[in-house]
Design a protein around this nucleic acid. Structure first.
Length: 152
DNA sequence: GCCAACGTTGGC
DNA sequence: GCCAACGTTGGC
């Protein structure tokens, strides 16, 4: 069982939207970075992920979600009307993938990036080291620490 | 809205 | 294969 962190701008798709999407969850698509894509493909059912609100006030880890379906081709890459359309992705060998994720919990106390930066044991977190990676691994100690900061 | 970080593209 | 130009992310 692995731990992850996945970013979304709340003005686009927030943890409340995920909660509303219920047990079936949502396809986490639109990722157009190869390293993030590779992490998506290595996710397995039952893995847990922090839902992180980026470009938010404040930017913060706001809850937990669960991987409920493993990698499948991201349909937005084939949709010319979608912002994430990729005309160079061959349908027979899709370039971009998504996983299905579902709501687990929303933190009563979000853990902001300032909180994370202020916590010495989290200074190696990928979130701080690699600013713009939208899907990233979290170690077990980091996971426990962030949930601790969330009051869990 | 600014801009630093950094990934991608494309000319050579 | 190098690297400059360009585009995007995301904190502030």
């Amino acid at each position: 069982m692995a731990y992850w962190l996945m970013k979304s701008e709340p003005s686009v798709y927030s943890i409340d939207d995920l909660k509303r999407d219920g047990a079936r969850g949502t396809g986490w698509g639109g990722v157009r970075n190869y390293q993030a894509r590779n992490f998506l493909r290595s996710m397995r059912k039952g893995d847990l992920a922090l839902f992180y609100h980026s470009n938010a006030e404040p930017s913060a880890a706001v809850g937990v979600m669960k991987v409920v379906g493993e990698a499948e081709p991201d349909p937005t890459q084939f949709d010319p009307k979608d912002d994430h359309y990729d005309p160079d992705s061959p349908p027979a060998a899709p370039r971009w993938w998504q996983v299905q994720v579902a709501f687990v919990e929303k933190f009563a106390e979000p853990v902001s990036i300032q909180d994370i930066r202020a916590e010495p044991s989290l200074k190696e977190m990928t979130l701080l080291k690699r600013g713009r990676l939208s899907v990233q691994p979290v170690t077990a100690p980091e996971w426990r620490r962030v949930l601790g900061l969330a009051g869990k």
